[in-house]
Amino acid sequence: MLRNQGIQASGIWVQYRLYIIFAIVVILIFGFLPRSNDHGVGLLHSSSSASPREQAANSTLGFEKLIALSPRPSWRTRGLKAAADLVGLDFHVPIQPHNPEELVTAFEQIGKDQGKKGPGHGSARAWLAHLDMLKYVIAQGYETAFIVEDDVDFDVRLKDQIRLISDNVREFTFATDRTPYGIDWDVLWLGHCGSAIEDSMPPTLKYRDETRCKTELYSGWSKHFLRDKLEEDHRLVQTSMQTVCTFGYGVTRKGAQKVLELLGTGGNEAYDVSMGSFCRSEQLRCIVVNPQIMNHYEPPKDAGYLSPVHVGDGQGAAADDSSFETKMGTTGNIMQSARCKALFNDVCMRPPSEM
């Protein structure tokens, strides 16, 4: 009987050892499997086997999250979705908190007792909305994010453009990791309405991109810089010099916190102007692609369009949004608009101008 008990005990011990070995094998297998990433591959230390330029051409442009700033569904968000579906992008539109009028008015007044020029009411509301998106990025723990305004537009060849941007931003920052754009920046400014090119600025990096808007067709205050300082079919990667309009910009986690702390103090005429000034003073490390690859789409003005910022600043009233759904507008400096292709099967370049 004792012998039988010993045999049983021995059998139990063998089974126990087998269970332990099986558990160790399972742990090892699952420990070395690649983990899925719900937010794309734009992490600061990406382990993806894809090249950096191919990571940049994914559905989030190589960032952990693509975020669209929007107060509510409208022709803006519906047009953005149509353009994104056409190009193959995945935008997330967080619920935008409504800031009370008292907060907006108080923000307008910051610094005015010191002689600073504060924003108009509509500009202050837009400024606070951008700050709310930065708070969202920080709260969600994203390592990188790209923020666009909901009326943004881009070229149908955006993925080709972004591969070139990845190559050249990485070269510009001497990146040695495998992330799409390196990590040596706070703000990567791709969607704007102009940036200066000055002889005194730090070294730039010029690269060829034949999808770029021709200088003669460009509309905006910075046109003379392109004409005098940059040859056709080329873009510059440069530090930010007097960059304005925040149609689309990337932030790192650390960069989002720095922008929030610096721009949360108000005391300037607009969010983009304030960010540009902190870039120029090098309190923010800002990299700009010039000319831009994103701009804003505008419905036709004869249909009664006026931007929400201008309405909020007291410059008039806009027609009902529904009147803009079926009438094609224009996008400056984007040769083949994704919005207009998706919605109207057409191109819609804004007429050239110097302003």
Rank of each mutant, 00 (worst) to 15 (best):
R3H: 13
Q5E: 14
Q8A: 10
V14H: 09
L28T: 05
S36P: 06
H39T: 11
G40S: 09
V41I: 08
L44C: 14
S46C: 03
S48M: 05
S51I: 07
P52F: 03
G62F: 02
G62I: 05
F63I: 05
R76T: 13
T77M: 01
A82R: 03
L86Y: 13
V87I: 12
V87D: 04
L89E: 04
F91L: 00
I95N: 10
P97H: 10
P97R: 10
H98Q: 14
N99K: 14
E102I: 15
Q109L: 14
G122N: 08
H130A: 05
Q140C: 11
G141H: 09
E143T: 01
A145M: 06
V148E: 04
E149W: 10
D150R: 02
D151A: 08
D153W: 04
F154G: 02
D160A: 13
D167C: 07
V169W: 00
E171G: 14
A175S: 13
D177L: 00
D177A: 03
C193I: 02
C193R: 12
E198N: 13
D199A: 15
L205M: 09
Y207F: 15
E210W: 13
T211P: 00
R212C: 09
K214C: 00
E216H: 07
E216A: 09
L217E: 07
S222N: 14
S222M: 13
H224A: 11
F225C: 08
K229S: 12
L230A: 08
E231D: 15
H234W: 09
L236N: 07
L236I: 06
Q242T: 11
F247P: 00
G248P: 11
E261T: 11
L262N: 05
G264R: 05
Y271Q: 05
S274D: 15
S281W: 01
C286K: 04
C286F: 05
I287G: 01
V288H: 02
P299N: 12
P299I: 05
P300N: 02
S307Y: 00
H310Y: 13
H310V: 00
A318D: 06
A319M: 10
M328Y: 00
M335L: 12
Q336Y: 11
A338F: 04
K341T: 14
F344S: 13
V347D: 14
M349A: 09
P351C: 03
E354R: 06
